[in-house]
Nucleic acid binder design. Structure first.
Length: 224
DNA sequence: GCATTAAGTGGCC
DNA sequence: GGCCACTTAATGC
């Protein structure tokens, strides 16, 4: 079975020319859950395209506290901060939250591809713009809204990205995030996540599946 | 079985 | 909402 690069995320639509060039230059690899892809400050050798799974890019302080700077889902490309400019070193640490299937592209090959394939570069630009919007939205959320609202918002955004809409209108998030994962992303303590999750469940915004996975109700009108 | 990790709770600030 | 202490459940070698 030969690996093929799927039309996923910003890569679609993917022309046959783009596909063959990328497949020739990159490689596929699977990482187990919790494995570290790279550390902040290491020489940047490769870019990653997520085919399946979830990756957290995080910053860490002296006392070990983490802040998940970005969460990458299938179709995302990273690291994208400083892409094509000052990309000498990885800007953050990256860890697989779930087991992941990734397409890995060496830095020089990626730059060459963006140079020789203008259409690919335009698609990348649109992707970067979306990521920029996401970051701004998240930053203002952090300053303007309560932790409970941010948690609900986070679950909804995640559900819209990787969730499955069910017939009853609920969105099923098919992967399990630990309380710590969520806490790192929202910048709050895992105990708070646990409590807020109970609160959201009792308010009927969230439901729990048997296997610890979550269901979210997405009604913009009833947004707390 | 024993150690580790995740989840949940109560209390105090 | 953070932090600490403690309990319980789940997972791993």
């Amino acid at each position: 079975m030969i690996d093929r690069l799927p039309e996923l995320g910003w890569l679609q639509p993917l022309s046959e020319k783009e596909r063959t060039q990328l497949e020739k230059e990159g490689r596929f690899r699977t990482y187990p859950s919790k494995s570290v892809l790279f550390f902040q400050g290491q020489p940047l050798s490769d870019y990653f395209f997520i085919l399946d799974g979830l990756v957290s890019a995080y910053q860490q302080n002296e006392s070990g506290k983490r802040l998940s700077v970005s969460l990458f889902t299938p179709g995302d490309f990273f690291p994208h901060v400083g892409l094509l400019t000052d990309a000498g070193a990885y800007p953050a640490n990256a860890e697989a939250i779930t087991s992941c299937r990734l397409f890995i592209l060496p830095k020089e090959k990626a730059w060459a591809a963006f140079e020789t394939l203008p259409a690919l570069r335009r698609k990348l630009t649109r992707f970067l713009i979306r990521k920029n919007h996401e970051l701004m939205q998240r930053y203002s959320d952090a300053l303007l809204h309560s932790a409970a609202d941010r948690l609900l918002n986070f679950l909804r955004q995640l559900a819209l990205k990787i969730g499955r809409r069910r017939a009853d209108g609920w969105y099923a998030i098919g992967i399990h995030l630990t309380g710590q994962n969520i806490a790192d992303y929202l910048g709050i303590a895992p105990e708070t996540v646990s409590r807020l999750l109970h609160q959201l469940v009792s308010e009927r915004f969230v439901r729990r599946e048997e296997d610890r996975k979550l269901l979210v109700k997405i009604d913009p009108q009833k947004g707390r």
